[in-house]
Design a protein around this nucleic acid. Sequence first.
DNA 1: TCGCTTCGTTTTGTATACAAACGGGTCGGA
DNA 2: TCCGACCCGTTTGTATACAAAACGAAGCGA
Lengths: 226, 226
Amino acid sequence: MARASDSAYKALREQILHWQLLPGTPLSEIELAERLGVSRTPLRAALARLALEGLVDTSRGRTGVVSDVSAASITDLFELREALETQAARLAARRCDPNVFDALAARFASAPELLLTEGSDAYYALVTEFDAALDHALGNAVYRGALDGVRLHLARARRIATANPDRLARSAEEHRLICTAIRDGDVALAASATTVHLNASLTTILETLEARTPAGHPASGQKGSA
Amino acid sequence: MARASDSAYKALREQILHWQLLPGTPLSEIELAERLGVSRTPLRAALARLALEGLVDTSRGRTGVVSDVSAASITDLFELREALETQAARLAARRCDPNVFDALAARFASAPELLLTEGSDAYYALVTEFDAALDHALGNAVYRGALDGVRLHLARARRIATANPDRLARSAEEHRLICTAIRDGDVALAASATTVHLNASLTTILETLEARTPAGHPASGQKGSA
DNA sequence: TCGCTTCGTTTTGTATACAAACGGGTCGGA
DNA sequence: TCCGACCCGTTTGTATACAAAACGAAGCGA
């Protein structure tokens, strides 16, 4: 990981995910190489990787731009996410170690205090632990790769909706329900609870997004085609 | 697409998918660059792309190898595939143009004759048309990207199980049922029929794979970790 | 005889130099 | 004045040269 291409990739990814590089920003190889202190060759590799992961859009023009985050693209993302996570919840309900998800349920139950004392970052860290537990329960590297792809884009979208303590508290309750359902091996409930959670999450993000773009002021171009 | 990196990518992908480059084959940059008549720079890009798509495994050692196709990896792949395709079938049942899937159902109904007169390649072309219709009904570029990733690996796995006319005829009947369910907007049936089809397909591939590896003769190493 | 260290070869990773292609701008003509 | 073609600058795509690191083998020592 000490390779220049990797560090360039990590740096760019971080900046895109943190909205320091805004959607639509053109990514000139020469300029970025200079700014990141690497040669064009490893930078090209980093850019190619970001393009394949969907964070960089190379389809328009020759110079790549940071890919767009529109209401349409987020809706599409959540459609895929629902397919993956509901089935993941079902599978986990069959295979998991109940103790793991029992412990997670308890931690989600006490999340309101966590939010008060340590803030939203600590809560997101807890969600990451939940994701890891889900991955471990699945025991499927291919499936995990697909989930990671979704989580990557989700991390960027989530930055818009951060800092809504009320929503996060409800999110914690939804996660708690998912955890108990998985712990109890209740396949149907695990899937349904996941659907409920994702719908609430999507709604929140879309509302925040709409509030941010007053109307007639599209954030940065549209989604793919018509 | 006239770029050297793209042609190298396409050539390598073709050879891997057609089992001309067998799983485990080491991919030396110098040798491949010479063989394909391109420089190492574009070849590296091609190799990186294949690695990100999962056709090349760079985790073991420094030199990448063609990724493995084991019973375990195929089972994992199908677990992901089921998550994606069952939900895709549900969504398509809600959104599709009935005429499209009605026409497809008719063509799957007459697939037995197609298999007799034109062979399995023509049948696979029909399946590809079905996939395209599904993508179009979804109208979701992100979802399609995930499906394409699965289809890529599936194409390689399928090469093992090809040329079982009896199975293909049954596959056609399963597809016909899926098409009619989608056409009729029957969400539950579309999903269930897809599950049935995928299970049958997986079983066939695993049986063929087992018959090919007589025992104690692992095709080419194991899957990821333990 | 087994294990460790060390050296050599091979392979990847990076930098730079060069060629080609796209875009913008300007000049000329209708 | 508007349209079109051509030219030039910038940017990407490719090739090669160099550096660093990893694998393997051989030799030494216990």
